[in-house]
């Protein structure tokens, strides 16, 4: 058999690889390349965090297998952070999980919630795993043009109206990577608060979503029972978790 595996055929060659190859070649020739291509932060981790890591690693008990969903202290610390920062209460037992960075979490969540053939709406351009997590999981991805000059609101409405079956999830990412759009500045925000969104099951009923999206929270009922997802690989303004960790936020319980 020479044919590629089913999933591999759905993963196009990494576009960035081409530029990376040229970059490596130039460096091999001794050229000074200023690399602004990868989003790889250059600044060191603050010393008090490194100190804590070093202290803990010196204790052999820390070398054993850890806890998949995160040690209780970390889940509590995350809930505490959301309480202080967003005034949002989270149950560390049921509403918080630690992940191995945001890519891993999003990829495994996609696998966990997707049935083959599901339609998922993903802004385009977007960070690759936002769509490829679902593609790997066997979903059909419908792109929502998210360029600054596109009317994302209209594109979303069209996608919801014409997708069969109705979309199972919508990926939202603020500030967007790569376009740095903010929920306050683009039409997605108004769409997520609109009756169309509500009819499609995408209403922002979560306190987290509300704190990010709306100044006047409102509850809306949903006609379809669909998981509503509001991931964000960083909070809405340049804040610590951007470098601390990929953070993303899922909307709260499905209300029918």
């Amino acid at each position: 058999m020479t044919e590629e595996f089913h999933r591999i055929r759905r993963l196009p060659p990494y576009v960035f690889a081409e530029v990376n190859k040229a970059k490596a070649a130039a460096r091999a020739h001794g050229e000074d390349i200023i690399d602004l291509g990868m989003g790889n932060p250059d600044s060191p981790t603050p010393p008090h965090i490194v100190k804590k890591l070093v202290e803990t690693v010196a204790d052999p008990r820390s070398h054993r297998y850890s806890v998949s969903r995160g040690i209780p202290g970390l889940r509590k610390a995350l809930a505490g952070y959301y309480e202080r920062r967003f005034d949002v209460g989270l149950d560390p037992e049921t509403e918080v999980i630690a992940t191995l960075g945001s890519k891993e979490g999003l990829a495994n969540l996609s696998a966990a919630i997707t049935s083959p053939g599901d339609t998922i709406l993903v802004p385009n351009p977007s960070y690759p795993i936002h769509q490829f997590g679902f593609i790997i999981a066997g979903a059909s991805v419908r792109s929502i043009p998210a360029t600054p000059d596109e009317d994302m609101l209209r594109a979303l409405e069209r996608a919801v109206r014409h997708s069969v079956p109705k979309p199972t999830a919508l990926i939202v990412n603020f500030p967007s990577n790569p376009t740095h759009s903010q929920p306050r500045s683009i039409s997605t925000r108004s769409w997520l608060l609109s009756p169309v969104a509500s009819r499609s099951g995408f209403s922002p009923t979560s306190p987290i979503a509300r704190s990010i999206l709306a100044t006047s929270p409102r509850r809306q009922s949903c006609r379809y029972q669909v998981p509503r997802i509001l991931p964000s690989n960083s909070p809405p303004c340049p804040r610590p978790t951007r470098w601390l960790a990929g953070a993303w936020v899922l909307q709260q319980a499905i209300r029918a």
Binding site: E95, I97, E104, G105, S206, P227, P231, A245, W248
Partner: peptide, 20 residues
Amino acid sequence: WRMGFAAGNPRLIQALTRIK
């Protein structure tokens, strides 16, 4: 260091917890 988290919808968090 690859440290991230997800928070919110318990049904989704439980699904992710199970698969992980």
